[in-house]
Every structure is written in C-alpha cells, then in structure tokens.
Amino acid sequence: MLVVVSTGGRPVADLPGPLPQNVRVAPYLPYDRLLPRIDVMVSNGGYGGVQQALAQGVPLVVAGRTEDKVEVCARVGWSGAGVDLRTNSPAPAAVADAVHRVLAGAAYADRARALAQAFAAAPGLSGLDDVLARLVPAHAARA
C-alpha cells in the first residue's frame, strides 16, 4: 500500500522521521491528478476535499469535529460512501481499521461512484436558477 500525505502547507521537514518506505509527503497535493488514482482518501472532513473525493468516486475515512466538519463527516457515514470516525484525533489503529474496512468490500466504493454519477448529472448553477425562478414569484405572491 502506498500512502500519500499532505502536510497542509506545513514544511515536510517538520514531520518526525524516518517515514516508512511506502509513504510520500508533500505540502499540498494536486487533487485533480491524485484522486483518480487512489482507492481511499483519509481526511479531516473538510467540505472541499470531501466534495472533490466524492466527485471522483473515491470513498473516504473522515475524522473532524471543528467548523462544519461534524456535519460533513456525518454525511459521509450516512451516505455509505465512507467511514466517519466521529473524533478530531483518531487513534492510528482506528484509522487503519477504517481504511481496511473501506478497502475490504465494494460497498463504500460503489456508493462513492454512485454519488460521483449523481454529482455529474446534477444541473449545477442552472438548476439553482430554475429553483430560484420558481420561488421568487411564489414569495412575491405571498407578500
């Protein structure tokens, strides 16, 4: 298993070493190039990273309890597209167990791929325009 890690902008040299032979580290990762090549993403549950992973059909292991991460992580677990560890600081064994669960069967990956298909089929901003156009006249009629 190859593990690719982002330090989130912190210097790579600040990591305690030596790192195992199967680990690669960079301050930032190009999600557009990396995500199509991975089997599972471990994340702090940030909205942007989770959305990018799901848009590529990548299942997740998430652990985050700050900002909006509680809700984002809960939705990952609820959707079946990954495992929510329900903590901000998971034990290494819990992360390893969750990664192995995600990789052990097809259910998480299947669900992540289904969400990617739904994302791709969604109308995006034009769909929002349609909803707003329907709501504005309804709101004006009530005023």
Rank of each mutant, 00 (worst) to 15 (best):
G127T: 00
A114I: 02
A74T: 14
V4T: 07
A107M: 07
P36E: 02
V70L: 15
A13M: 06
D110N: 15
T7R: 12
A133E: 04
L103A: 07
R101I: 12
P18T: 01
L35P: 01
G57I: 04
V40C: 03
A81T: 06
V3P: 01
V42Y: 10
L19H: 05
L2G: 06
L128I: 09
S89I: 12
V12R: 08
L54C: 03
V83C: 06
P18E: 02
T66G: 10
V50A: 07
N22S: 14
L35I: 08
A98F: 09
L85I: 00
D32M: 10
D97H: 11
A140T: 05
V131H: 12
D110M: 10
L125E: 04
E67K: 09
L34M: 08
D32S: 13
P90V: 08
A109P: 14
L34R: 04
G8P: 02
V76E: 00
V12K: 07
G77T: 09
P90T: 11
L125T: 06
A138T: 04
G48F: 14
A98E: 07
Y47W: 11
D68Y: 06
V72L: 00
S126T: 14
D97M: 10
L132H: 03
L2N: 12
V131Q: 13
N44I: 01
N88H: 05
A138F: 00
V62K: 08
F119N: 07
A138M: 02
A138G: 05
P18R: 04
L103V: 15
V62R: 07
M41D: 02
G77W: 02
P11S: 15
A93Q: 10
F119Y: 13
G80Y: 08
L132C: 07
S43M: 02
A106N: 12
L103G: 06
V12W: 10
D129F: 05
A96F: 01
P30C: 11
P59L: 03
G48E: 11
V42N: 05
A133F: 00
V95C: 01
T66P: 01
S89Q: 12
T87S: 11
A96W: 04
A118G: 06
R86G: 04
L29S: 08
V62M: 09
Q21N: 13
L54S: 06
G82W: 06
L132T: 01
